Measured scan of single mutants.
Amino acid sequence: DVEPGKFYKGVVTRIEKYGAFINLNEQVRGLLRPRDMISLRLENLNVGDEIIVQAIDVRPEKREIDFKYIP
């Protein structure tokens, strides 16, 4: 289970104008929005990159997770 405030290693699987989709595993995916990136820009991410993200909002009923990147 993903818990708000905890850090997780994930893989960038898709990049859109509104953010990057990060997979923690095959069943768990969330969104990293540009506003939640500190010292990292969306255009510097590539599909396949491994990054450490912090879960900031977890909505299991909608199967949605918002992430934050903190270097």
Rank of each mutant, 00 (worst) to 15 (best):
P71H: 10
K62S: 12
I22F: 03
L32P: 01
L45I: 11
K6W: 08
M37N: 05
I52S: 06
V11N: 06
N25T: 12
V47R: 06
L32A: 01
Q54P: 01
P60K: 11
N23S: 14
N46E: 13
R33C: 03
V12A: 01
E61I: 10
R63L: 13
E43F: 09
D36P: 01
I56V: 12
R14K: 12
L45Q: 00
K9T: 10
I56H: 08
N25A: 10
E64R: 09
D66M: 09
Y8K: 00
L42K: 04
K62D: 09
Y8P: 00
K62T: 12
L40Y: 04
E43W: 11
L24M: 04
A20T: 03
E43K: 12
I65L: 09
N25D: 10
K9H: 12
A55H: 01
R35N: 10
F7G: 03
N23D: 12
I38W: 09
E50P: 12
N44M: 14
P4N: 10
K68C: 08
I56L: 14
V47N: 04
N44Q: 15
D49A: 07
F67A: 01
I65E: 01
G48A: 04
L24D: 00
F7N: 07
N25V: 05
S39Q: 14
D57T: 13
F67I: 03
I38R: 11
V2R: 02
P60Q: 10
R35P: 05
G5V: 03
F67Y: 02
M37D: 03
R59K: 07
K68Y: 08
D57G: 15
E3H: 14
L40S: 08
N25I: 04
D49G: 04
K17H: 14
G5Q: 06
F21L: 09
R33Y: 02
R41H: 12
V28C: 08
V2P: 07
I56F: 11
L31T: 04
A20R: 01
L45H: 01
K6H: 12
V11K: 12
D36E: 06
N23H: 14
F21I: 12
R14N: 06
Q54T: 07
Q54S: 06
N44I: 08
N23Y: 11
L40K: 08
R29K: 11
N44C: 13
G48Y: 06
K17N: 13
N23R: 12
L31Q: 02
T13P: 00
K6V: 09
K6P: 03
E64Y: 13
P4T: 14
Q27G: 12
E43Q: 11
L31V: 06
D49N: 05
Y8V: 03
E26P: 15
V53Q: 00
G48V: 00
N46C: 12
R35V: 09
D66W: 09
E43L: 08
D66A: 09
D36L: 05
E50Y: 15
I22M: 02
N23P: 00
N44L: 11
E43C: 10
I15N: 00
I70V: 14
K6I: 09
D36W: 08
L45K: 01
Y18W: 14
V2L: 09
L40M: 11
K68I: 08
I70Q: 10
E3D: 08
I22G: 00
I56T: 10
K62E: 10
E43R: 11
V2M: 06
E3R: 12
D1Q: 14
F67C: 03
L24S: 01
I15P: 00
P60C: 07
G10I: 03
R63E: 11
E3L: 14
N46K: 15
V12N: 00
D36F: 08
P4A: 14
V28A: 08
V53F: 02
P4V: 15
V58E: 03
V53N: 00
P60G: 09
V28S: 07
E16V: 14
E26S: 15
F7A: 05
V11R: 13
V47D: 03
L24E: 00
I22K: 00
D36C: 07
E61F: 07
D57K: 14
I38C: 11
E64D: 06
L42A: 03
D1V: 15
P60N: 10
P71D: 09
I22Y: 01
V12D: 00
R14V: 08
I51R: 00
F67Q: 02
E61G: 13
R41Q: 13
T13N: 05
F21A: 03
G5K: 06
K9S: 10
L42S: 03
R29Y: 13
E50S: 15
P34S: 11
I56G: 07
V12L: 03
V2E: 02
I70C: 08
N46Q: 15
I65Q: 03
L45N: 00
G48E: 03
I38D: 13
Y18L: 05
R59M: 04
R41L: 13
L32Y: 02
I22S: 00
V12C: 03
L40W: 04
P71T: 08
V58G: 04
R63M: 13
K62L: 14
V12M: 01
G30A: 03
N46Y: 14
R59L: 05
S39N: 15
R14Q: 12
M37P: 02
K17V: 14
V58A: 06
P71N: 08
I70A: 11
K9Y: 11
E3F: 13
F21T: 07
V11D: 02
R29Q: 14
K62H: 09
L42R: 03
D36G: 04
K62V: 12
R63P: 08
N23K: 13
P34E: 13
T13D: 06
Q54A: 07
Y69W: 09
S39K: 13
K9N: 08
D36H: 13
R14E: 06
F21V: 10
L32T: 01
G10V: 05
V2F: 11
V12K: 00
D49Q: 13
K9V: 12
M37R: 01
K68F: 09
E16T: 14
E3A: 11
S39Y: 13
M37G: 03
R59A: 04
F21R: 04
V53P: 00
K9R: 14
D49R: 05
R33G: 02
I65M: 05
D1K: 15
